[in-house]
Amino acid sequence: MKFQKTLTILILIIVVLAVFAAIIGIFSEGGPGEFEMTSVRGEIVLIYGEGIYKHMSSEVAIQGIAQDWVTLLVAVPLLLLSLSLSRRGSVKARFMLSGTLLYFLLTYLFYLVMAMYNQLFLVYIILLAASFFSFVLSILSYDWNLGKSNFRNQLSVKLIGGFLIFNAILMGGMWLSLIIPSLLNGKYPEALDHYTTLPVQGLDLALFLPLSFLSGLFVIQKKPIGYIGSAIYLVFLSLIMIALLSKILFMIFVNGADGIPAIIIIPVINLVTIILAVYTIKNVKEENR
């Protein structure tokens, strides 16, 4: 694989710093505990008040801790496993590696632009930089003109592409249902809390959901970029959905939030995503490495 040495160094940096950041996020203590504050918009916001996330709203801080657990227990081991196997020449592992790197890229992009400034700020910068450049190097290693030949003919492109398009429309509709009413009635969305904007929704709508839609569309059209893009995106989406499910569970059991209907819908979508990711990776032909 091209850029193997540089990619390995960058990934090891990600592993060390991601483990460090996740442990700090999960176990750090200190602070006044939960308290209320009035935002610049005149709204009462419950602040978490403990550890590294003490200045974040309670709801978002809990979600950050949930994602730290997923990063520590799922994403980091998968990153190391896929790196090890890809260094041995596994084509399947290369797709897993790219998808996992995209997870780290999105995760620390959100941490950098959404988490309130804290002592891990430089760590988030390095993690985002290492994730971005390692992801770029990983996708540059593919022969994009031979995308289709990497997969067995029995791969159902309509199934995969249809799901990715459905995912983009479903998530996009959910975010727009939050944003559009607030724009029409001149009020701020409840999810805004004391933050300046909606980075998760904005970046999803601008970058990651169009990527899902286009990957799905291109694989249905049997374009080489669609085969590679959809395989990478399904691995990435599987990790993101695991993180989303963990956030919902933490909000229910820690914050006492009402998880209906998300606690029913998200596990189903998560399971379908993982099944399709496994199905797609299994249909990668190792002999084309």
Results as ranks from 00 to 15, higher is better:
221 Q>N: 11
26 I>V: 09
37 M>Y: 09
188 Y>A: 13
90 S>N: 03
114 M>S: 13
250 F>A: 08
126 I>C: 07
263 I>E: 02
65 I>N: 13
154 Q>G: 07
248 I>P: 03
34 E>L: 08
237 L>K: 15
258 D>H: 03
235 V>P: 05
51 G>L: 03
27 F>H: 14
167 N>D: 11
72 L>P: 05
255 N>G: 04
222 K>V: 00
231 A>N: 10
233 Y>H: 14
149 S>V: 11
120 L>E: 15
153 N>D: 15
196 T>D: 14
30 G>Y: 03
81 L>V: 13
221 Q>C: 06
178 L>H: 03
70 V>H: 09
159 L>I: 13
26 I>L: 12
239 L>S: 04
148 K>S: 10
146 L>V: 12
231 A>D: 10
59 E>Y: 14
38 T>G: 03
15 V>C: 02
38 T>K: 09
37 M>L: 14
73 L>A: 10
227 Y>T: 08
74 V>E: 04
16 V>F: 09
175 W>K: 01
142 Y>T: 09
130 A>W: 11
51 G>E: 02
180 I>M: 00
214 L>V: 15
18 A>W: 03
148 K>M: 08
245 L>K: 10
133 F>N: 07
197 T>M: 10
248 I>R: 03
104 F>H: 08
13 I>C: 11
207 L>A: 13
123 V>D: 13
188 Y>C: 05
30 G>R: 05
47 I>R: 06
84 S>W: 15
133 F>G: 05
167 N>W: 12
146 L>R: 15
99 G>M: 04
90 S>M: 04
272 V>C: 00
226 G>Q: 06
7 L>T: 15
103 Y>F: 05
17 L>I: 05
58 S>N: 10
8 T>N: 01
67 Q>M: 14
224 P>W: 11
197 T>N: 13
21 A>T: 04
189 P>F: 05
194 H>T: 07
227 Y>M: 05
